[in-house]
Amino acid sequence: MTTVFIIGLFLAFFLDGSISQMFSGVFYSYPNSMVPYLTMLWLILTLYFVDFKKLHIELWAAIIGFLFDMYYTGILGIYLFAFPLVVYICRKIYNALPQNFLSGFLVYFLGITILVGLGYFANDFIGLTNTSVSVFLVNILAPTLAINLIFFLIFYFPIDSLYMSRRR
């Protein structure tokens, strides 16, 4: 189970970059910007389907967040803390809700919003962006949410059955 999780985690991590590169004309064309967060999707879906007590998922989120910072952006300290925080929040909320597809969808929606928002405030703080809040909400947050929820719809059931088959 752990092996599947780790392989999937790194696969999702690299796919984030590859998909951005392949579809850069579609994803980053002015004025919208859609960022795929498959790594986050993998972490949260694992949270939904796997008994997380055996798996230190926040720790893995921090490790992959650190790699994300180091390899993709070169600015350390943003996703290193944002990934585990989002995973923690999502876990708390998901456990308080009835566990089904719809609540999973809503929690994921919330998680991506927090993640993108944290990224925005961190980049704003260190002066790497001067995007206004309204532009951020309309042209960055909304398209990013859209693309990630589509990915959620596509991958929810395949990953569910993948973990189900490994459990037996």
């Binding site: 984030d16 970059g17 910007s33 990224g119």
Partner: peptide, 15 residues
């Protein structure tokens, strides 16, 4: 060759 692109709205970066 380009390996990948930074998945981020803030940095237009390629590797």
């Amino acid at each position: 060759a380009v390996i990948t692109r930074t998945p981020s709205s803030w940095a237009s970066q390629i590797i």
